[in-house]
Measured scan of single mutants.
Amino acid sequence: MASQGTKRSYEQMETDGERQNATEIRASVGKMIDGIGRFYIQMCTELKLSDYEGRLIQNSLTIERMVLSAFDERRNKYLEEHPSAGKDPKKTGGPIYKRVDRKWMRELVLYDKEEIRRIWRQANNGDDATAGLTHMMIWHSNLNDTTYQRTRALVRTGMDPRMCSLMQGSTLPRRSGAAGAAVKGVGTMVMELIRMIKRGINDRNFWRGENGRKTRSAYERMCNILKGKFQTAAQRAMMDQVRESRNPGNAEIEDLIFLARSALILRGSVAHKSCLPACVYGPAVASGYDFEKEGYSLVGIDPFKLLQNSQVYSLIRPNENPAHKSQLVWMACNSAAFEDLRVLSFIRGTKVSPRGKLSTRGVQIASNENMDAMESSTLELRSRYWAIRTRSGGNTNQQRASAGQISVQPAFSVQRNLPFDKPTIMAAFTGNTEGRTSDMRAEIIRMMEGAKPEEMSFQGRGVFELSDERAANPIVPSFDMSNEGSYFFGDNAEEYDN
């Protein structure tokens, strides 16, 4: 993207840094990872977990959730003011799984939030270390993106479920800051804005008074975040219109849905970061690795190297396929839920299948599930090659597409044709070009129609051997075009429920 120079890199967003050079960025990201790792080690000690239990991804998720809940100030305040039966607002906890007599047992633990905050700050040299908290939120978000298709949420806001490739980060909490905003897809931002506008339509006082002023500035800020994701002048001009509207209503909703559809071809720039579970960072720190000293990046080879040398386990339900569970977590670790499966298959070195073909449910185990038949197995999170994460949407291309997802959002900077089903997408653009945004709409449609099938995206960008740390010898991959490109292809993934 041309304006790259004016933006802070995501590592800076990730670490609240002012302008830093590459070495400083690597050190501050490393410091953040160190903090998460030290916190995780301490929690495993508190909970008396064995090494194996500490490497269980379900335990990692519970521990991450506990610290996120302990620092969720708004919710904590709300819980104190609106006490609900049987919930102690000062405590947080969740299921911890232990191996007892050759069987997995679930144990519900409860801790004072104050105590968890103390352990977290102690692991982070006394700081609140917001960057580390956001990092864990993005890992949870990436896992949700890989596990669930947001059909219901899309339909509720009037969008087409086939636009799911635009929904990265749709389950990120509001408090995820600049680093969170960077990884949100165009569809996620559109959905947040539509929800806001709908509230304004239904509630006369939404934009009024002292609160209304705050609401208005939040609305304009979200519009600017979305505008910054678009790469064409016409899309940005249309966002200006939406932002400046005196009284946002149905016309703005129409414009936003139009823009979301246009992003299936004229893709937005959305950041991709490899955020790993805390149970990967903990053992690495415990083994003596100093992330701050060595430096770390979320968008280069580092996460690949770390996963190459990590042992992570997962509980497996009786009829689940461990290899499929591994694929789910591998995609989440690489922030690749909406990437082209052919690119992923090449990088991973084994075939990556669409969601609907995987015999696996989510990673988390519900409290009512029976533990008797639970097994555990090693997650295979290694890769054959590594590639640089991208934040450009890439230019655009036609490809055989599917009944489910009709476009992709690249996660890796790797040369390819970008699949999208042009006739299906263009069919949504018939007729409606009147109104105050008509010239911009016409211009956007013209650009979409001009998108050429034979153009290559990320020209000359390749993948790298894991021994090639400096990215000196790019390998331009070859793809098996007979395979499906979309992950949520004609899909039956479970729906995400809060």
Rank of each mutant, 00 (worst) to 15 (best):
R236W: 07
S170H: 07
V100G: 12
V186D: 01
N432T: 14
F258A: 05
P248S: 12
A218G: 05
V270F: 09
F489Y: 15
S310E: 00
E210Y: 01
N321R: 15
R74A: 12
P89I: 03
R461F: 02
F71N: 10
Q20A: 00
A131E: 06
S413T: 11
R361F: 04
M196I: 11
D51W: 01
L68K: 07
Y289F: 12
V100P: 13
R436E: 09
R106W: 11
A471Y: 13
Q311S: 15
G132D: 09
L358W: 06
Q4C: 08
V352C: 05
Q409R: 00
M426K: 03
E252A: 06
T62Y: 06
I347D: 01
Y148N: 11
E115I: 06
G35R: 07
F458V: 04
E53R: 08
G460W: 07
T45N: 11
M481E: 06
M447F: 15
R199P: 05
S392I: 10
S326Y: 11
S438T: 03
V352N: 06
G158I: 04
I406H: 09
T23F: 08
M105N: 11
Q405W: 11
M238G: 13
G17P: 15
D34C: 12
C44D: 03
E14L: 14
K452E: 06
Y487H: 11
E244L: 02
K48R: 09
T433P: 10
N319M: 04
I445F: 05
L307C: 14
Q459C: 01
A337K: 05
V414I: 14
G435P: 08
S457D: 14
L154W: 05
G35W: 04
S413F: 08
S245C: 10
H140L: 09
D72N: 07
R216M: 07
H324C: 01
I425Q: 00
G394Y: 05
I301T: 04
R199D: 02
S60L: 09
N492C: 09
E114F: 15
K87D: 01
Y281W: 11
L264A: 11
L166H: 06
M456V: 08
A153V: 11
N368P: 07
M32L: 03
G180F: 11
A22Q: 04
Q42G: 13
E380K: 10
M481F: 10
M456A: 14
A337G: 13
G94R: 07
R118I: 13
S165E: 01
Q122T: 13
F489R: 00
Q459M: 07
G209I: 00
K184M: 13
C275Q: 05
Y289W: 08
L256A: 12
A428H: 15
R102I: 03
K7W: 02
T147H: 11
N319Q: 15
W120P: 06
H135F: 10
K325S: 07
G460D: 00
I41S: 14
W330V: 08
N211R: 00
I444H: 00
R348Q: 08
L172E: 03
G30C: 10
L264M: 15
K273P: 07
A179P: 09
A493L: 10
C44L: 13
M66K: 11
I445P: 02
M456C: 12
P318F: 12
G126E: 10
I119H: 10
E252Y: 06
